[in-house]
Simulated assay, not measured.
Amino acid sequence: MLVINNKIAKVLILFIVFNLTTRISWGQEYKLVNISSELSIFGTSTLHDWEIKVENIKGSINIESLIVNSLKIEIEAESLKSGHKGMDKNTYKALETDTYKTIVFQMPNSSELSEQSEGKYLMEAKGDLTISGTTKNITLKFNVERNNDQIKLKGEKTFNMTDFNIDPPKALMGTIKTGNEITVKYHVTFNK
């Protein structure tokens, strides 16, 4: 009986060592936590400034030491909410959400973290942003906070809607016009 237990113990130890080695060599994957993440879009119009919040966001990040191997953030297009049904309807029409259900940022190549202080880093991620069927290569700059089980990314990016072939929404037969430039501010959390 003791011999069998020793064999089982050896197999278990080999299994654990293999799993740890695989995890270390492939990095750690973290999943985006929707409930503790915020992403908002800010813009202007001929009437007033506006803000739209994203309700449904998902994604993942894979980090090995100071290298981010992959990053993907996906937004459900019709989870953009302004608090005004008419504005939301115009937003969905401009984004063609009947056809294009998601907005996606994906980093195809790895990126290095630049350490600023203990657990705090800067990252410049070059990746593909796809909105309404148009994909553009953009650069996002992140402030990164990292501890054992959690990673937080924070930053903002300004661009024009027309960069993605989106006509800025209009209301009341064109008397209210949305400005072309928007700023996306994000503070997203990933857990193991």
Rank of each mutant, 00 (worst) to 15 (best):
T135F: 03
I151C: 03
M173C: 08
M107T: 01
S65D: 12
S79W: 02
N148R: 13
L80G: 10
T134H: 02
E112Q: 15
S132K: 15
I16Y: 08
L113P: 05
E38I: 01
M161R: 08
N34E: 15
S111L: 04
I24N: 10
L172Y: 14
T21S: 15
V188P: 01
K177H: 11
Q28G: 15
L122G: 11
T189I: 11
L122D: 13
V33F: 02
K157M: 09
E118F: 09
N109W: 03
P169M: 04
Q150F: 10
D128Y: 13
M161I: 07
D88E: 04
E115D: 04
G174W: 12
I166D: 01
N56S: 09
E112R: 15
N69M: 10
G83Y: 02
A77H: 00
V104E: 00
L20N: 08
E181T: 11
T139C: 03
T91F: 10
M161Y: 10
K170T: 14
A77T: 09
N160Q: 15
L14N: 14
L71F: 01
P168G: 07
T189G: 04
N62V: 04
N62D: 03
E118I: 07
N191S: 14
M87L: 07
N34H: 10
G179F: 07
N34S: 12
M173S: 01
G27N: 01
V104K: 04
I41A: 01
S40Y: 08
L80E: 03
I57K: 03
F105Q: 01
N147F: 09
E51T: 10
T102Y: 04
A9P: 05
M87F: 01
W26P: 11
I16P: 08
K31M: 13
T175P: 10
L153S: 00
K7V: 14
S79I: 01
D88K: 05
L14S: 15
Q106C: 08
M173V: 03
V144G: 05
Y92W: 10
I41T: 03
G27M: 02
L12Q: 13
Y100Q: 04
F190L: 07
L172R: 13
F18V: 13
I176R: 00
L2D: 14
F190S: 07
